Simulated scan of single mutants.
Amino acid sequence: MIRLVGILIGLGFTFVVLLAFITGASTVIGQGYLTEETAEYAFHEEAHGPDGGFQFEGPFGTWDYTQLQRGYQVYKEVCSACHSLDYVAFRDLTDLGYSEAQAKAEAATWQVPGINPDTGEATSVPAAWTDYFPSPYPNDVAAAAANNNAIPPDLSLMAKARHDGSNYIYALLTGYQEPSAELLERFPDSAPGTGLYHNPYFANLNLAMAPPITADGQVTYADGTEATVEQMSADVAAFLTWTAEPTLVKRKAVGWAVLGFLFFATILAWFAKKQVWADVKPKRRKD
C-alpha cells in the first residue's frame, strides 16, 4: 500500500512538472518570442567568437587586461547610451588594471543622481568610485519610450544569461544583415517590421536594438589599437564576460590547485593503505 501511494505521488509530481513545462513553452510562443513558423530558423546560426577566440577561454585562460580596458571604452562610448551595468561599481575598475587614482578619476567623468546641498533638489553629480554605474534612463517607462517600446536589458550578467555568452555577444554585434532570400520565401512574415532589425543570432531573428557598432573607427582606442567593427565587438564581449564573472580566471587557478591537491592526497592515501594492510594476508576460501 505504501509503495502504491509513493508511485502515485511520483506520477502526480511528474505530471505537474510536465504541465508547467508545456504551459511555459506555450506562453513563450504566444508572446512571439519564438514562433512555430520560425522555430527551426531561430538558432540556425551558431554563435561564434573572433578569429583565434578569447584569451580567457580554456582551462588555462587568462584575462587580457588591455582588451578589457578597450572593452570598457566601447561600453562607455557606445553601449552605455542604452544599457546599464547595475551590478558593477567604479571601484571594480581596479580589477582591470587601473590604479585607485585612475578609477576615481574615471568615476568622476560619469554623472549619477544626487541632491543639491543648497536647494535640496534632485540633481546630477559626478560619481564617486564607490558608486555603481548609473542607468541611462530614470525608469522603465522612459527606457521603453526611447527604444521602440523595448526596454534595453542590463548588461552586467548578460554573458552568463545567454548560452555561450561571450561568443553570442560577439556574433550578435557583428551579425546584423538583411534576411536571406530563402527565409523570406519560406516565411514572408519573418521580415523585420518597423523599428526592428534582422539578426540571425537573435532568438526570434528580429530585434529592436539598432546595430550599435556600425563602422570602423567608431571608437578611438587610447592604446592605439585599430578599432574595426570586429575588434570593438570582441573587446566589449570580453569586457561583459568580466562583468558577468570577474573571478573566472581566479576560479580556474583555484580549480587546478584543488585538483593537484586531490591527486597528491590520493597518492598518499594509496601508500597509506599499502602500509596499513601490508602484513594482513587474505583468507583463503574453503570450497
Rank of each mutant, 00 (worst) to 15 (best):
M1N: 14
L4C: 10
G10D: 05
T14F: 14
V16F: 15
V17W: 05
L18E: 09
A20D: 15
I22G: 10
I22C: 07
I22M: 07
T23H: 12
A25C: 01
S26E: 11
S26D: 12
I29Q: 15
Q31I: 05
Q31L: 10
T35A: 06
E37Y: 11
A39T: 00
E40F: 09
E40N: 11
F43Q: 07
H44M: 14
E45C: 10
H48A: 12
G52M: 00
G52F: 00
W63T: 01
T66R: 01
T66Q: 05
G71D: 10
G71M: 08
Y72D: 15
Q73E: 13
K76G: 02
V78D: 06
C79F: 15
S80P: 02
S84F: 05
L85C: 06
D86Y: 08
Y87V: 06
V88R: 07
A89M: 13
R91K: 14
D92F: 15
L96I: 06
Q102S: 11
K104C: 03
K104N: 13
A105H: 11
W110Q: 06
V112N: 05
I115K: 10
I115H: 03
N116D: 11
N116W: 09
S124W: 05
A127T: 14
A128C: 04
S135F: 06
D140P: 00
V141W: 12
A143M: 05
A143W: 02
A146I: 01
N147H: 13
N148Y: 10
N148S: 11
A150M: 09
I151K: 12
I151D: 04
L155W: 01
L157S: 07
L157Y: 13
M158H: 02
K160M: 14
K160S: 11
S166G: 09
Y168I: 02
A171M: 08
L173V: 00
T174R: 03
Y176I: 00
E178P: 03
A181K: 12
E182T: 13
P188H: 13
D189T: 11
S190Y: 12
T194H: 08
L196P: 09
H198D: 00
N199F: 00
N199H: 02
F202D: 07
L205A: 08
N206D: 09
N206I: 11
A208I: 06
P212Q: 07
A215L: 05
Q218Y: 05
G224W: 05
E226Y: 00
T228R: 03
A234C: 02
A234R: 00
A234E: 01
V236N: 01
A237S: 09
A237F: 02
L240W: 00
T241V: 15
A244V: 04
A244P: 04
P246R: 12
P246N: 12
P246L: 14
R251E: 09
K252N: 11
A253I: 13
V258M: 13
F261C: 07
L262G: 08
L262I: 10
F263W: 09
F264S: 05
F264K: 01
F264W: 03
A265C: 04
T266C: 15
F271I: 09
A272Q: 06
K273W: 15
K273E: 13
V276I: 11
K281Y: 14
P282R: 14
